[in-house]
Amino acid sequence: MTMYGGRRSQAERDAVTVEIGYALCSAVFAAVVVLGAVAGPTLLFELPGVLERTLRVVGVVLAAVVFLARVVSVLVRFQRPAQPSQPGRTSPDS
């Protein structure tokens, strides 16, 4: 991404597209895992109606929260600029 509001190169646009795709795919995977872990037992066991509905609602809510948190964390991490290098330093302890 350019420093002073200029136009982005094709490589920068491609990098943003790939990062958005990664954020969405990893967020969907994480949300499905959470939903399966919380609401999955309702498919395997006979549970009372109230408990079954509660687990499904909690699973959906947690999955949505995990999805949003994952997307935001990946995209914020991508947006952060790399730390500038320090010319003349040859090792971490110098």
Rank of each mutant, 00 (worst) to 15 (best):
R77M: 04
L44K: 11
G21E: 11
V74Q: 01
A27S: 05
A82L: 15
V71Q: 05
L55M: 07
A37F: 13
E52L: 13
P81M: 14
P84C: 09
D14H: 10
E19Y: 07
V60C: 06
R89L: 13
M3V: 06
V71F: 05
R7F: 00
A63V: 00
V74H: 02
P87Y: 10
T90F: 05
F45Q: 10
V66H: 01
V65N: 08
T54M: 08
A82S: 15
P87W: 10
T17Y: 12
Q10R: 14
M1H: 15
R56M: 08
A15N: 11
G59C: 01
L62C: 07
S26G: 03
F67A: 02
G49I: 09
V76H: 12
M1Q: 14
A30S: 06
R56D: 02
S9Y: 14
T2F: 06
V74S: 01
P48C: 05
V58L: 04
F78M: 07
V57Q: 06
E52G: 11
L43P: 06
F29N: 11
R56L: 08
R70Y: 03
A27N: 00
D14G: 11
V16E: 14
E46G: 06
A39S: 11
V57Y: 05
F78T: 05
S85R: 10
P87C: 10
L51E: 08
A23K: 02
A31G: 05
G36R: 15
L75R: 04
A23C: 11
A11W: 12
Q10F: 13
P84F: 08
G88D: 09
L24Y: 02
Q10L: 13
Q10G: 12
S73E: 02
S26F: 01
V32T: 14
A82C: 14
E19P: 06
G88I: 07
S85E: 13
V65M: 11
G21V: 09
R70Q: 10
G5W: 03
F78W: 09
P92V: 05
S73T: 03
R77Y: 02
Q79G: 14
D14I: 13
L62N: 01
V66I: 00
S85D: 12
V58Y: 00
F67L: 03
L51V: 10
G6A: 07
V18E: 09
I20K: 03
L55C: 00
T54E: 06
L68Q: 07
V57G: 06
R7Q: 01
D93V: 13
R77V: 02
V72T: 14
S9T: 15
S85G: 11
A82H: 14
P48M: 03
F45Y: 12
L44W: 11
V34L: 01
G5H: 01
T2D: 14
A23F: 05
V28T: 05
A31I: 00
S85F: 08
R77I: 01
V34H: 00
R56I: 05
D93Q: 14
A23S: 11
F45S: 09
L43Y: 09
E46C: 07
P92S: 04
Q79C: 15
V60Q: 02
V33W: 08
V76I: 15
R13W: 13
M3G: 05
E12R: 09
F67S: 01
A37Y: 12
E46D: 10
Q83F: 08
G49L: 12
P41S: 10
L75M: 14
T17V: 12
L55N: 01
V28H: 00
V61Q: 01
L68K: 06
